[in-house]
Design a protein around this nucleic acid. Structure first.
Lengths: 214, 214
DNA sequence: CTATTTCCAGTACGACGTACGATAATTGCG
DNA sequence: CGCAATTATCGTACGTCGTACTGGAAATAG
């Protein structure tokens, strides 16, 4: 049994090395040569374990999806969905490349399916039709990705942008924006951490409530 | 005045050519050489008009943002936000590369600012604090991008995925997913077009309502 | 042992973004 | 007019990417 030369590495090793690089240096730093170097292999050897780079990214997504600790299902959809969103957010913050890599990915692998399963379980008490449940899950995922992307971009809007905005506002024709800036300038600092729970809570509660009442 | 050799093209020509390519063949097909070929220039000539490719994508985003017909402000936030979301959706469907290009972009240029202005105007009657208004606008944009991405991916889940899902479900351990599939299989066909208005309406109404009541 | 199977990895190709530098076109000054 | 100064054009070239190809290395089956 097991004829031929035995593999020197495993698919998981390759995927984990890619994830490690992406976590620290970003998705753009993940190249086949770089991965090979990290695990001590020739660049072309990777193609024994992975068909191509695109598929590798799919595998990366699915693998980190398997690292989330499953959230407990209490039976209260609001609590459970919020917990699910929170665990997703934690995942995306631990792997900042994830929000960017997520769109346009075929959800290959079981881990993405177990995420769906959890979402469906959380929404079970609502009694909504299955397609609506799936839509709500997709929307929540998108919301979390949007939020985390904004979060990771940092609240510092870069000096060049401040200049641009100030200039445009001074040029006139944007009264509400000018008012918002003025209000923001004299307002308090950033509200801090609980922003996510607040916004996600609003969206989840609002979305499900509306869905139930229609 | 205007010393030196006169430019043979304009920045707008370059950006428009890039948009034209992206619309038809996707963002990946937008290369400097390809753009140059389309407008009849040498590849390096483009750098007279654009500092680098990354900036070019910024310009593409801002330029298509200027093509949206401004939505009328009725004073009813629900109607106005829904119209704004609808116009964004139309824009993203006309330029399918937009949802993918949008994240991680500095919002350079006035067109993005006028979009913000419109959102703020729509939210004006709510009397919410300015930062909350901006958060809501960002969330709605993210929602539209998520929805359109899903829309453009097509409702056909590709045979390989169907096989994967079926297999995983048959393996057990995913009861809610199995139930959802069963329910979906015997259910009616796709609800069709009004999906967007329905989902966006739920989210917008729910989000703003929740924000107002807290 | 030999044959077979499997994996390893060097070389190489085409495409990418773009730095560099020679060349061309235009204006201002004499 | 000619001649510098200025600005745009674009061919060439470099380093990097994904990956096709290929010959060699390491294991098992007989």
């Amino acid at each position: 049994m097991a004829r031929g030369r035995p593999p020197a590495h495993t698919r998981e090793q390759v995927v984990d090395a890619a994830i490690g690089i992406a976590d620290v240096e970003g998705l753009a730093a993940v190249t086949m040569r770089r991965i090979a170097q990290d695990i001590g292999a020739g660049a072309m050897s990777l193609y024994t374990y992975v068909p191509d780079k695109d598929h590798l990214v799919d595998l990366m997504v699915d693998r980190v999806g398997g690292t989330v600790t499953p959230v407990p299902i209490t039976g209260d959809w609001r609590t459970d969905l919020l917990a699910l969103a929170g665990s997703q957010r934690a995942l995306m913050r631990a792997h900042p490349w994830l929000p960017a890599a997520l769109p346009n990915r075929r959800l290959i692998g079981r881990n993405m399916l177990t995420y769906l399963e959890q979402g469906l379980a959380a929404l079970d008490p609502t009694g909504l039709p299955a397609p609506v449940k799936l839509e709500i899950i997709a929307l929540i995922t998108g919301l979390v990705a949007t939020f985390v992307t904004a979060e990771l971009a940092g609240s510092a809007p870069a000096p060049e942008q401040v200049a641009l905005i100030g200039e445009a506002v001074a040029g006139g024709g944007l009264p509400h924006l000018a008012a918002a800036l003025a209000e923001g300038a004299q307002g308090s600092g950033p509200p801090g951490e609980p922003d996510f729970d607040r916004l996600a809570g609003w969206t989840i509660t609002g979305l499900v409530t509306q869905a139930l009442s229609s």
